[in-house]
Amino acid sequence: MDPLDNRQLQLRDDGRLRHFLTIDGLGRELLTEILDHAESFAGVNERMVKKVPLLRGKVIANLFFENSTRTRTTFELAAKRLSADVVNLNIGASATAKGETLLDTLRNLEAMHCDMFVVRHPSSGAAHFIARHAAPYVSVINAGDGRHAHPTQAMLDVFTIRREKGDFSRLRVAIVGDILHSRVARSQILALNRLRVGELRIVAPRTLIPEEARSLGVHVFHDIHEGLRDVDVIIMLRLQRERMHGARLPSEHEFFQRYGLTGERLALARPDAIVMHPGPINRGVELDSAVADGAQSVILKQVGYGIAVRMAVMSMALGPDAAREAS
């Protein structure tokens, strides 16, 4: 899908956010607005009453066709901190593999007057499909679709970078690991380029880099020692164990030997570099325990920031009721 279509599908006529499906097609200004709002919401998480009345009376449905405890929980907490009501639906992917069933699910939830669907699905394009067929007053947030996109994860990652390191233009960022299977990496690359990061590197074996990588505006490294030299931010990706049977990699052990983040390798980066990971981490596969729990790790901060970023996206997409009033 080209960026123009993504823009049209995601934005209202006045340029405001309606659906949040992919970073593609969204401008730097809108991404910055999300980060600014998240900054305000981060304050709410530190108060006595961790709740604002913004989305009182709204109903948000978490539609998870694929398991993800952390993502679902942070979306749920974000919705609750905005005072929305939340329903969680864990739908076995096999039972709803057909488009028809998915639409039926959709119509039922619309009949229950849901205002927003947060969708996690193993198939690329599922959130787009739902957004295209949803009633005009419903907003759709993509919480990860297949190998395609995970835009709220990317936004919480760039939010973490901005909070911890400041101005993007001065920064060198390295994304390390299984780029090929990673919707997170795809969204991160789009977001970091849109926000004009100084230099963006991907570090991975040839077999785990998508063919189109060089057109993504990144520097490709196959040697982790070269790739980490003087970087400000290291983003480790989760090795998708469930997708490793494809024999693209000999073993987890070998992966750690060649691409795992150890204290020694971390020392190649700038002394104040931060280590990030979208979780869940595989200790001893992507990174050493000492690094994961070390002073430079911001992995647990990312989780907290994820709530603030999701609050920002939800409140922006569920803003004015114009569509509902008109329908």
Binding site: R16, E33, D36, H37, E39, S40, A42, G43, L54, S315, M316, G319, P320, D321
Partner: peptide, 13 residues
């Protein structure tokens, strides 16, 4: 909020 949506210039309290 439901009439005019999110204030784009909101700052942290």
């Amino acid at each position: 909020f439901t009439r005019i949506g999110m204030n784009p210039q909101v700052r942290p309290s």
